[in-house]
Design a protein around this nucleic acid. Structure first.
Lengths: 146, 146
DNA sequence: TGGGTCGGTGGACGACATCGACCGGAGAAT
DNA sequence: ATTCTCCGGTCGATGTCGTCCACCGACCCA
């Protein structure tokens, strides 16, 4: 994980369609050398997978909300399992503060969000939810390098 | 944007390295037909770009937090602009509830997070922040189709 | 000094993306 | 009802690119 690796990761984060020849030109290496570095970045788990960034609205996913979850007792494993099983929950974190968990939920309409909330109340230990509705998305980008 | 398009998007979300031949087999279409559909999905903005999912820890980004932002007056444009200029802010949303904005911040160590907070207080209108620190990431996946 | 290892180069090969020519079916207009 | 048109598909050709292999130089340590 040297500086060249970090530059390669940064370039791939920006656009994973770059060819090895292009990457090689940008980091002053042969295509084969870049190929080998990327292979190792993937093998070591630094690069997990390549995916595609989509417009949620185009898929009808027009509701975005963050849900704070309050629980009683140790509920982490149940919460993560239940949340992970619903594709509408994009993220789940255990957090510090007044609540125990924070989920990011994206759904097609308010009904979808409500279904997620109902599902969450089935989870043993969950006693309260507080939903922060997103009015307007400023931006959503993934990890990006400085 | 028919059902086949949705299936293609779902497959690309899962793994964008699939060849057109593979995609074609999965949706019962020729490689060329899939190629044309993907070209149009990109042109129409449904698919924005292809990127790579990385392990934040491998890049030293070990701090994740959500920051609730309280403002006075109309501060949206300033907030989004300032937040967008800092690569440590991965998301920024205008939200309903007790606070006006919700940011997702990922940094290398607590110092990076504090720098982001200091930067935010420079933004005209910002009067308070509340930071929700993530103790443990359950999962972070992007949009996924049911 | 000399062998071993690691990471790089260059070239060859086959797979794949990409394009063009052709084709068939659904609608619209006559 | 028939013909025209257009959209979206298949098929096949071509050039680029990913991928592998053999070789090489630098560096480390005995």
């Amino acid at each position: 994980m040297d500086d060249i690796d970090r530059r390669i990761v940064g370039l791939l984060l920006d656009d994973a369609d770059r060819t090895y020849a292009q990457l090689g030109r940008e980091v002053a290496l042969s295509p084969a050398a870049v190929h080998e570095r990327v292979r190792r970045l993937r093998a070591s788990g630094v690069v997990r997978r390549s995916t595609v960034e989509v417009d949620p609205d185009a898929l009808g996913l027009d509701v975005l909300a963050f849900v704070l979850l309050d629980t009683e007792g140790w509920a982490r494993d149940h919460v993560f399992a239940a949340a992970g099983a619903d594709p509408r929950v994009e993220e789940a974190h255990s957090v510090a503060g007044n609540s125990n968990f924070l989920l990011k939920v994206r759904a097609a309409g308010p009904d979808g969000l409500e279904e997620v909330l109902r599902m969450l109340y089935q989870v043993p230990g969950v006693v309260r939810t507080r939903t922060i509705m997103v009015l307007r998305r400023g931006f959503e980008r993934g990890v990006s390098l400085p």
